[in-house]
Computed example of a mutant assay.
Amino acid sequence: MSATHTPHASSAKYAWAGGLRVFAAVMLGIAGLLAIFRGIMAIAEDDVFVRTPNYVFQFDLTGWGWVHLGLGIVAALVSFGLFTAAAWARYSGIAIAALVIIANFLSLPYYPWWSVIMIAMSGFIIWALCVDRGEDAGVGR
C-alpha cells in the first residue's frame, strides 16, 4: 500500500469522535428537556425543592425556574444543531453546557443531588464536544 492511502487511516482514527458528537447531542437534548421540567417545577414553586436559609448564593426559586427554563430551551435547540455537525452548534453546546454547570452550582441548595448529576452530565457533554474536532480532524483529506 502506498502513502496515499493515509486518509482512510485518518478517517478510522477519528471515526469514534463523530460518535461522541452524537452522544453530546443526545445528552444535551436530555439535559435541556430535564432543565425545562426543572424550570417549570421551580416556577410553580413545587415542594420538591429544598430551602436552605444560609446559602451564600441565595436567590428566589421562581427566578431560578426561569433561568433553568431558558437554558433548557436553548440546550434542546442546540442539540438539534449538533446532529447536523454544525460548528456553531458545537461551540454553542460547549457554552450552554458551561452555563448549565454554573446554574446548577448556584442552585445546589434547592435540589442538591440533581444539581450534582447535571454538573457531571454537562462536564461529559463539554468533553465530548471538545474531543470531536469535526472537519478540523482532517477526515477525508
Rank of each mutant, 00 (worst) to 15 (best):
Y14A: 05
F80R: 02
I101N: 03
G32M: 01
A128I: 11
W127I: 15
L129A: 06
R21P: 00
L20S: 02
P109Y: 07
I73D: 01
S115Y: 06
V67I: 14
T4C: 00
T52N: 13
A35D: 11
P53G: 07
V48Q: 12
V131Y: 14
S79A: 12
N54C: 00
L69F: 14
P112T: 14
M1F: 10
G93I: 06
T4I: 05
I36K: 02
A103C: 11
A15N: 09
G18K: 14
C130T: 09
M118V: 03
V50T: 13
F23T: 12
R51H: 01
V22P: 01
L108F: 15
L99E: 07
G18I: 09
Y111G: 00
T52Q: 11
G72N: 08
F124E: 00
T62A: 11
P112M: 10
N54S: 10
A24D: 09
K13F: 15
I125Y: 04
W127D: 06
P109K: 04
M121F: 12
W114A: 08
V74F: 12
I101A: 04
A98P: 01
L69C: 01
V131T: 15
A137P: 03
G63A: 15
V131E: 15
Q58V: 10
L129H: 06
A24H: 09
S115N: 13
V26M: 05
I126K: 08
G123T: 12
Y91F: 14
F83P: 00
